[in-house]
Simulated scan of single mutants.
Amino acid sequence: MKRQPLRLAIIEATRILEEAGVSSPRFDAELLAAHVLGVERSRLPMIPLVDPPVVDAIGQLVAQRAKRVPLQHLTGWAALGHITVDVGSGVFIPRPETELLLEWGLKLLRGREFPVVVDLCTGSGALALAVAHAVPDAVVYAVDIDAQALAWARHNADARAAEGDTPIRLYSGDIADSTLFAELDGLVDLVLCNPPYVPEGTPVPPEVADYDPARAVFAAESGLAAIRHALAVSARLLRPGGGLAIEHDDTHGTAVPALVRARRVLTDVEGHLDLTGRPRFVTARRVQDA
């Protein structure tokens, strides 16, 4: 069997994905090729020729991606910060947009010893586990209401602990519960939250509509229901000087900062843009005691 140029296989994969309406066809084609070859994407230029079975394997994955199966379902993982987590059916896939929210939280924790961190609506556990990896002395709590999501989070938490990361404390709970984490009231340095926030009825890409759990994507009250609950929890959990970062829909650039400002115990409210320049998350701090 004659070896074939990998470059041509990637060009053809890119063409197929572009025609299928995939938003990042070249990136996805390269990542699928790297996945088949078992190498980092950055090493692809070092592999000029591949065997025909490799081209066939890439083609099979590309065909699935062209049907709008999420890239992360095909590779089995998603990245956040300096870690990867396993993902698949029944759990929300972490998005690149959340990287900036994570960065803000980690910056806030610099210089704090043994900080207490809470990740609301943890899903796969990615945010909580990224914090535990980056801040080894942090005490990280994570909560979700969905049993399937918690199963993925537990799997990922066990895997990260086996790699030597500080274990997180994972709980089943509802952020609408006014007693959630009551034992931590006034003790938390950082609350992170990527809740369901897409307004119900909003058209979304097939990767979201057909694969992400609806309860992890959509929220009532024009997408603000879960955010309101998260703010109520955060306002009582945070210690003076503690910080909050909460993600929101790009249509919430005015509404969510207004909701945060309405909480008198929160100050320094600031809206942040995502990687594409759209409003994506809001940060605030708990007022210092007088």
Rank of each mutant, 00 (worst) to 15 (best):
R280W: 04
Q4E: 15
H82I: 00
P25F: 00
G223D: 04
R41N: 00
D119H: 12
A245K: 02
Y197S: 08
L190Y: 01
P136Y: 06
L184I: 13
G271S: 15
S222Q: 12
L244M: 07
P279E: 06
E207N: 05
E183H: 06
L180C: 05
Y211V: 03
A29Q: 04
P279C: 04
T283C: 12
V39C: 12
Q72I: 01
K107D: 10
T75C: 04
A232G: 14
G243L: 09
R169E: 13
D250S: 11
A33G: 03
I83R: 00
D56L: 10
A230T: 14
R286C: 14
F218R: 02
D289R: 08
A153P: 04
D174A: 01
Y197G: 02
P257D: 03
A176V: 00
P70R: 02
F218M: 03
D212Q: 10
V256Q: 08
V233Q: 15
H248R: 06
G81Y: 13
V140H: 11
W152R: 07
I168V: 15
A157T: 08
R261V: 09
R285T: 09
L8F: 08
A63P: 02
A225Y: 02
S24F: 12
G88N: 05
P53R: 10
T283P: 02
G111S: 09
L61H: 07
G88W: 09
E163S: 11
L238M: 08
D86R: 14
E247Y: 11
V54Y: 01
E200P: 01
A176S: 12
V188F: 07
G277Q: 06
D177M: 10
A13P: 07
D212M: 05
G186K: 09
L108V: 12
H73G: 01
D28M: 04
Y141K: 06
V117C: 07
L275A: 06
Y141V: 01
G125W: 05
Y141W: 15
L44I: 08
R286P: 00
D274I: 12
R154V: 00
T14Y: 03
G59F: 07
L37G: 02
L237M: 12
E221M: 06
P53N: 03
D158G: 09
E103A: 14
D86K: 15
D289Q: 10
S172R: 13
A126D: 07
D51A: 15
